[in-house]
Nucleic acid binder design. Sequence first.
DNA 1: TACTCGTGGTT
DNA 2: TAACCAAGAGT
Length: 376
Amino acid sequence: MRAMSLAGAAPRRKQSPVITASEPTGPDRGERPAALLAWYDRHRRILPWRPPAGVPADPYAVWLSEIMLQQTTVRAVGPYFEKFMARWPSVKALGAASLDDVLRMWAGLGYYSRARNLHACAVAVTRNHGGAFPDTEQGLRALPGVGPYTAAAIAAIAFGRQTMPVDGNIERVVSRLHAVEEELPKAKPRIQELAATLLGPERAGDSAQALMDLGATICTPKKPACALCPFNDGCVARLRGDAETFPRKAPKKTGALRRGAAFVVTRGDQLLLRSRAAKGLLGGMTEVPNSDWLADQDDAVARAQAPALKGVTRWQRKAGVVTHVFTHFPLELVVYTTQAPAGTRAPAGMRWAEVATLADEALPNLMRKVIAHALD
DNA sequence: TACTCGTGGTT
DNA sequence: TAACCAAGAGT
């Protein structure tokens, strides 16, 4: 352990007493896994789902965190992970919960198919595996919501399997280390292969988490802190001086603006809500009635999709619009409000909910914006 | 392969 | 400010 503590400071090549300025001074290829782990032992992040060094990880906590972290920042996940662990401390507990409860707890975190698959996975592990996660990559891969990355991550981190998960961080680190010119996603197989060479003979999970921490804190997308990197001058992209340009990837096109209308109906202290279709955009989540969302949507056409309510003929249009940006398109919603008389029946498929308890509803943030705008 | 699928923070 | 990015999966 004592020797390891020095590895973060750029180990020198053993066979070359004479080192020129341009010669690589980073660890030799074969020494990289050890240098990486030594760096990790000194600089690993403290995270809610990560036990203290040397303490085995709880597969349930690893799985839950990995699902939440898909395309989601560590900061955003933190409170959700704590909430879920407190309410459902085991996969069996989560498997016994209702999908509705899971969606309510997940509301605001985005990518709601993850929550549906999370629940389905908990049920499957409880029913088909006796509440114990499969301990192989192949077994994990068969579970809902568990793809190639997550299966490898759980196998390595929770079960010590010799496999290297490749996420966005690792793609960036590895593509820079080897200056991989091929564009993503075509370069994935090559990057997977190169990433696997960074696995130490033991501590596979730590190797993976080390690369992720390195990508998140040192080998960042913009202005990487190369001087602090354990790979040092062994990094080809750094030697070329264009580390920031990796990984190569085709620019993505932005979607066209879509427009629509949302209808906020109050009845005393209550509000009219309904549920969205089980799958697709915001699948299974709660919403206020609203129109189609279409590019070049005409305001009058959208307005005409207001719910039919007995005794309601007048709608007030709120000034301004609610804007929201989805991954593949931006959205602008015009908001109409009305006050329904006491006793007004909710249309088929809709229900009245107390405004005071809206926090407990499975409302995606878009809908929270709409309601806040309407009641403002 | 190329879309779909949320949200918030950075640059 | 527009673009990019974050421990990707499903179709």
